[in-house]
């Protein structure tokens, strides 16, 4: 097992897995407790438009992705809260719109889009050192903002109406949270790809809810679960020569499902 650690790309993959797990552990907890999985999925998929912009302009797609995913998070938040369109309808439309923009821009880009599949399905084995630094920076931003707004986000997720009445701008807080989700998407994209991000965002957090009643501890546990599963998935993908992103999700889902099957078979204790 140790021989795989000699490779540089493996060392980067391990770092990327851990850095991604930090972001998805922290933000995933908010996604799960505030039940905003669908809008998170919308932000994730719409951000494909940013990849398209990156290719079209001939820059690193990640630099198209960051502004575009932040932009789509804000648009999605505003449209779903302020317009008369039902929230899930608005999200569904913007979800596809972002992807459509991406598809057209990539089609118009001359030549072949070399690592398009990486963005869709993830390939943790091709993460360069520059991306590791970017992930490190994004993690730092996410940790700082959550440290500063921990109490505010807790109130927002628990009782949005009360938060509004107590004079805080619930809308701005919500948009800030959506922006953090957008940054998390950027962090996760190389690990599992756009298509599979939602699983990584929800499973570790949802699993951690079963072991603690404390929001902060949930985050620590979710980070540990996320790191463990992504490293285990990475190892399995090496053994079975399978795509890394999908193997990570498969390993995680298997444990998740077994956990809940076992949990469901236990006699229920009323609390």
């Amino acid at each position: 097992m140790l021989e795989i650690l000699q490779y540089d790309f493996m060392r980067n993959a391990i770092l990327a897995a851990i850095l991604a797990s930090i972001a998805c552990g922290i933000i995933g907890v908010y996604v799960v407790v505030k039940k905003i999985v669908f809008i998170s999925g919308g932000i994730t998929h719409a951000s494909f438009g940013g990849i398209g912009i990156g290719y079209f302009l001939g820059i690193n797609p990640l630099f198209g992705l960051i502004p575009f995913s932040l932009f789509s998070a804000i648009v999605m938040g505003l449209v779903s809260k302020r317009t008369k369109v039902a929230e899930d309808t608005a999200i569904g439309i913007l979800w596809s719109l972002g992807m459509a923009i991406g598809i057209i821009l990539i089609y118009w880009t001359p030549g072949y889009a070399p690592d398009l599949m990486t963005y869709l399905f993830g390939n943790i084995l091709t993460v360069p050192m520059s991306d590791i630094y970017l992930m490190l920076g994004l993690d730092a931003v996410i940790i700082f903002v959550v440290y500063a707004y921990y109490k505010h986000f807790m109130a927002l997720c628990f009782d949005e109406e009360f938060t509004k009445v107590s004079g805080l701008s619930a809308e701005k807080l919500y948009l800030l949270l959506l922006c953090l989700i957008a940054l998390t998407v950027v962090l996760l994209i190389k690990v599992v790809g756009i298509i599979l991000i939602i699983a990584l965002l929800t499973m570790p957090a949802s699993l951690s809810r079963h072991y603690t009643n404390n929001l902060g501890k949930m985050m620590y546990l979710a980070i540990i679960f996320g790191s463990f599963f992504s490293l285990a998935g990475l190892y399995l993908s090496y053994i079975f020569d399978a795509p890394s992103g999908a193997t990570i999700i498969l390993a995680m889902s298997t444990v998740y499902i077994l956990h809940f099957l076992y949990d469901g078979l236990k006699p229920k204790i009323a609390s």
Binding site: V33, Y147, A148, Y149, K151, H152, M154, A155, C157, F158, D159, E161, F162, T163, V165, S166, G167, L168, R209, T212, N213, N214, L215, M218
Partner: peptide
């Protein structure tokens, strides 16, 4: 606010909830 039964498995204690009332007078950090 009106009683919502939807968010009741939210991971907070009574103490956390009561302190939320003081939030309007707090800055981030």
């Amino acid at each position: 606010p009106q009683y919502h039964s939807s968010n009741l498995d939210f991971p907070v204690t009574v103490w956390d909830v009561v302190l939320m009332g003081r939030l309007s007078h707090k800055h981030p950090l």
